[in-house]
């Protein structure tokens, strides 16, 4: 092994220094979750646990109904992801392969929705959804997902993927009696799995992490999503940081799994706009 040069040592030092502020909140989020009050709730706070206080991870379920929040988030993000993937696939097929009047104009309208910030239309949407009675009881699930069942981003990304297939494929399929529906689901979808996975991962993460809409819509604690639940935990247990961080660590597990397992799809989805 070659001895590292002075320049390389300098690079390590700079990266090491930069890594401290980046990694510390990650470290603290997880290690703090198993730190006792003696380490966390005193001054000065400890950086390393003096003993592992696993109890936080069970106590937090007594402070807030974390399991229920988990279930709610899974239902909300699951429905949104499934629905957006399906509506995007079929819309992308229509835009990529079917001749229909006003196709370009409709595609333009789809893209226009990307320019409208959700926060600027959240008031009328709140009035609509709560006016339909979808902010109470089990109907809350419907209110949570209804505005997010379609995605211009997903449609755009999948249309790009479908356009990579030659249009002869479409003609051949039609002549062979395969039909549009079968061409789409038996040929294009299996061949476009990476793009579909990119859309799915992206949609799941943004749905799971939603904050503004669940915050204003949900009235019954029973139907609270995990993100709002964690923020309420923060308000309720300010004196017990161990419990708060335990909630954070537990709520991070699904996204952490998705980020690690779906890393290449994430980069693909994230940079779809940048790399073009």
């Amino acid at each position: 092994m070659r001895k590292p040069s002075l320049g390389q040592v300098a690079v390590y030092v700079v990266l090491g220094v930069a890594a401290i502020p980046v990694l510390f909140p990650v470290y603290y989020g997880f290690v703090g979750a198993v730190m006792g009050p003696g380490d966390l709730a005193t001054y000065p706070p400890a950086l390393v646990p003096s003993e592992l206080h696993w109890q936080n991870l069970t106590d937090v379920f007594r402070s807030v109904p974390l399991g229920r929040f988990y279930l709610n988030s899974a239902i909300q993000a699951g429905i949104i992801t499934l629905a957006q993937v399906i509506t995007s696939i079929v819309a992308a097929y229509a835009f990529a392969f079917l001749r229909l009047p006003a196709r370009a104009a409709t595609f333009g309208l789809f893209l226009a929705t990307l320019m409208v910030p959700w926060e600027s239309i959240i008031i009328p949407n709140y009035l609509t959804v709560s006016g339909w009675g979808l902010a109470r009881g089990g109907l809350t699930y419907l209110g949570l997902v209804l505005p997010f069942l379609a995605s211009a981003f997903g449609t755009f990304l999948l249309r790009q993927a479908f356009l990579q297939f030659p249009s002869e494929l479409r003609d051949a399929a039609v002549i062979d009696g395969c039909g549009h529906w079968r061409l789409l689901w038996r040929v294009l979808v299996p061949l476009s799995k990476p793009s579909i996975a990119a859309v799915g991962v992206y949609v799941f993460l943004s749905a799971w992490n939603q904050y503004f809409w669940p915050l204003i819509l949900i009235r019954d604690t029973e139907f609270q999503t995990l993100q709002i639940g964690i923020s309420q935990l923060n308000d309720a247990e300010a004196a017990q940081p161990g419990l708060i961080l335990a909630g954070v660590a537990l709520s991070l597990l699904p996204t952490l799994a998705v980020v690690i397992l779906g890393q290449r799809y994430i980069v693909r989805g994230l940079t779809a706009g940048a790399l073009r």
Binding site: G32, L47, N209, Y211, N234
Partner: peptide
């Protein structure tokens, strides 16, 4: 790694870190 954190979870961690009495 910070990408794995949602805005809410990251904010809560920072709330703990910024705690005036006992924060890091």
């Amino acid at each position: 790694l910070p990408f794995a954190f949602s805005v809410a979870t990251a904010s809560v961690v920072f709330a703990v870190i910024y705690n005036p009495a006992i924060g890091v």
